[in-house]
Simulated scan of single mutants.
Amino acid sequence: MSMKITKDDVSKVLASIQDLANKQVLVGIPASKAEREEGDEEPINNAQLGYIHEYGSPKANIPARPFLNPGIARTQESINNHLKKAAKAAMDGNSEKVDVELNATGLIAQAGARNEINSGTFEALAPATLAARRRRGRTGDKPLIDTGQLRNSITYVIREKD
C-alpha cells in the first residue's frame, strides 16, 4: 500500500500549535482600565480596589468579597470547552479559529466575574459604609456595586507569554 501526499500542511499545523502555546488569556483589571473617573473621591484605582475586595483588608476592616476567582470558576466548564476548540483548531492549522476561541474564552470569564459582582452573596456592608453612600446620594446596599466602575473595569486580554 502506498500513500501519496497531495498537500503538506505540517508546517502550518506546527505554526498554529506553537502560536496557541505562546498565548495566554488574562482576566482581571489591567492597568489600562484601572483609572477611576474624574471627580471620584477614591484615592486608589480600580485594580487596587478589586484586589482589596477580592482578598479583604483586615487593617481597613474590609472583609474579603471574592468575585474574580469564583466568577471565573463558575464558568470553567464553558471556558474548558472553548479551550478544547482552540486546541483542535490549532491541530487543524487554523490560527484564525484559535483566536476566535481564545476571545470567546476571555469573554466568558469576563462575564462570569462581572456576573459574580451582580449576583454573588457577600458579607453585608457596614452601617458606616451605608451611611457614607447615603451622604453621596446613593441608595443601594449591595456590596461591590456603588458606581459600577469596578464591575465595568473587568476585562480580558490575550497576550504572548513572557
Results as ranks from 00 to 15, higher is better:
E35C: 00
P143D: 10
A60C: 02
R114G: 04
G137L: 05
H82N: 15
L14F: 13
M3H: 14
N152M: 11
A111E: 10
R159T: 09
S95T: 15
K7P: 01
T147Q: 08
S57F: 05
A87Q: 01
I62P: 06
A34H: 04
V100R: 02
S57N: 15
M1S: 01
Y51E: 03
A89Q: 12
A113D: 00
Q76F: 08
K59H: 10
R135G: 12
A86Y: 00
T121P: 03
F122P: 08
S95I: 13
I29G: 14
D141K: 08
K12E: 14
V13W: 03
I108Q: 04
P30R: 06
R74Q: 09
R65A: 09
R114C: 00
G39A: 05
I44Y: 12
D40E: 09
G71N: 10
T105N: 12
S32F: 10
A31C: 02
P70T: 05
D146H: 06
I52D: 00
N118S: 15
P58T: 03
R151V: 03
I17R: 07
A15Y: 00
F67R: 09
M1P: 02
R65D: 04
T147A: 15
G148M: 02
P70R: 12
I17C: 04
A113G: 03
G50E: 09
K142P: 03
L130F: 06
R159C: 10
I117V: 01
I154M: 12
I62D: 03
T129Q: 00
S32Q: 15
N118P: 11
G39W: 12
A126S: 13
G50R: 10
N81G: 07
R134F: 05
K7T: 14
L20Y: 02
A132L: 12
I154S: 12
A21E: 13
G137I: 08
I158H: 01
T155P: 11
V10N: 11
K33T: 00
D92Y: 15
S95F: 11
P127Q: 00
E54R: 03
I29K: 06
L68F: 02
V157I: 10
Q76C: 05
A128N: 10
N103M: 08
A113R: 06
H82P: 01
K85R: 05
L144Q: 02
G39F: 05
E123K: 15
A113K: 01
E77A: 11
A90P: 13
I145L: 14
T147H: 08
K88Q: 13
K12P: 01
N152Y: 07
V13F: 06
G120D: 09
I79W: 00
R133L: 05
V25G: 01
Q48M: 14
N46M: 07
N22M: 14
I158E: 11
A47R: 07
L102D: 09
I154W: 12
T147G: 11
D162F: 09
G106F: 07
D99E: 13
V100P: 04
V10H: 14
